[in-house]
Design a binder for these strands. Structure first.
Lengths: 133, 133
DNA sequence: GGGGACAGGGAAAAATTATTCCCTGTCCCC
DNA sequence: GGGGACAGGGAATAATTTTTCCCTGTCCCC
């Protein structure tokens, strides 16, 4: 386990929320479980461009944060399922809203990124007002 | 500017949203501007534990993403203000909700992190059901 | 002139996160 | 026995992000 050298500021609710959902593939994993893809191997298949190891690490973090929990069946071969805790469930509507927002604005954002050139931001207020409209 | 080596998956709305708000201090900066702390130097004072350089980089990114825009006054000494674009404004309610969620659950999450020990996740379904309730 | 506030950025280092490679077991099927 | 599926982790490396240090310029005030 990696030992942090710079302390985090976790008194702010926003920081906590972002810590939980902010990992690179976290939200994708959460979305899998939401769609009832709950077994590690199934998630690995679903996210086949991501290394299984990476997914496992994220799963462990989600578990540490109390967003999901693991159900281990006594079966052989071993069978494991991840499910949402109550707190994890409460996150789903927020993620859905974020996703809607992203879908509604991704063209705008990607266009902005492409068009952005250092210095192109030099406008006077009147010009900016025009641009913003 | 850093040249990415691994392409991002930005077709998913959630990924886009997290890209925009996911930077380490992004949401704090957005919160400053929301509270009408709009000038770079004022933001630096407000977030005085963060290096000004870092804040500038995040501001530039928010600008590139079209979340905020810069108003440059012709004054001397130079005066600059950051303001939200319409898209930036539309993000605020979502952030407020995330913050509420984080505040409501941060004790739970921090407790989980502290109590988590590798292997403590080995429960049978019945025990998990009890824990989750 | 010296010092401070203003806005901003280059270069390098450090910290953090993501990724790859490869290894541990068990069981089933051919 | 060999090969595959299952769940999982150690160690090292690469990629990315964050941070520090220091420098550019203008203007005002003492």
């Amino acid at each position: 386990m990696y030992q942090r050298k710079i302390p985090e500021l976790l008194d702010c609710g926003l920081a906590v929320a972002l810590k939980v959902i902010g990992g690179k593939w976290k939200s994708w994993i959460i979305d899998c479980i939401r769609r009832d893809i709950r077994r590690p191997s199934a998630i690995h298949r679903e996210m086949d461009v991501i290394a299984p190891r990476v997914i496992n690490l994220h799963l462990k973090e989600l578990e540490e944060h109390g967003i999901i929990y693991k159900v281990i069946f006594a079966d052989v071969p071993p069978r494991v399922e991840y499910r949402f805790t109550a707190v994890g469930e409460s996150l789903l509507p927020l993620l859905a809203q974020l996703e809607d927002w992203g879908n509604a604005n991704k063209e705008y954002i990607n266009r902005n990124v492409e068009e952005y050139a250092p210095g192109s931001c030099q406008f006077l207020p009147e010009q900016q007002a025009a641009k913003a409209s």
